[in-house]
């Protein structure tokens, strides 16, 4: 199996951009970062299988076929990414309605309960 260098570089670039975006405090950036990393992972899955012709019985030989299994993985993964992204958008919007801000909310001081030894 040969590995396409340009694809490997593309995967690396997608992962670095995605991770950079996910480190942000802004939920929209986190979402975009997740989508970019997701695409990087999908490419990685594709790269894991052999390339070639469409694997149709009676056309060509198995040695020239593409590996269909990673392609099935990628399809599943795309569907899952879509569903999670939709949920996350809804959640960001609901959070925005509460705080008028798309940043990750910090815990306010009265939500952190460090025990101070009680009130006795």
């Amino acid at each position: 199996m040969t590995v396409d260098l340009s694809l490997a570089v593309a995967i690396g670039v997608l992962f670095s951009i995605g991770v950079y975006l996910m480190l942000s405090r802004n939920m929209i950036r986190i979402l975009l970062g997740y989508l970019v990393v997701g695409h990087g992972t999908n490419l990685l899955l594709l790269e894991a299988g052999a390339w070639g012709q469409a694997p149709i019985l009676g056309e060509g030989s198995p040695s020239t076929w593409a590996d269909p299994l990673p392609q099935a993985f990628v399809l599943t993964s795309i569907v899952i990414t879509l569903a999670v992204a939709a949920f996350m958008l809804a959640m960001v919007y609901r959070g925005f309605l509460h705080t008028r801000d798309a940043d990750v909310a910090e815990a306010s001081a009265d939500e952190v309960h460090i025990d101070d030894g009680g009130e006795e």
């Binding site: 996910m22 939920m27 959640m91």
Partner: peptide, 19 residues
């Protein structure tokens, strides 16, 4: 608001682990 705030780190961390 409280649950959205608490759910956010859970969601982001879970996404990262899934990736």
């Amino acid at each position: 608001a409280e649950r959205i705030r608490a759910g956010t780190p859970y969601l982001v961390v879970s996404l990262l682990s899934s990736v």
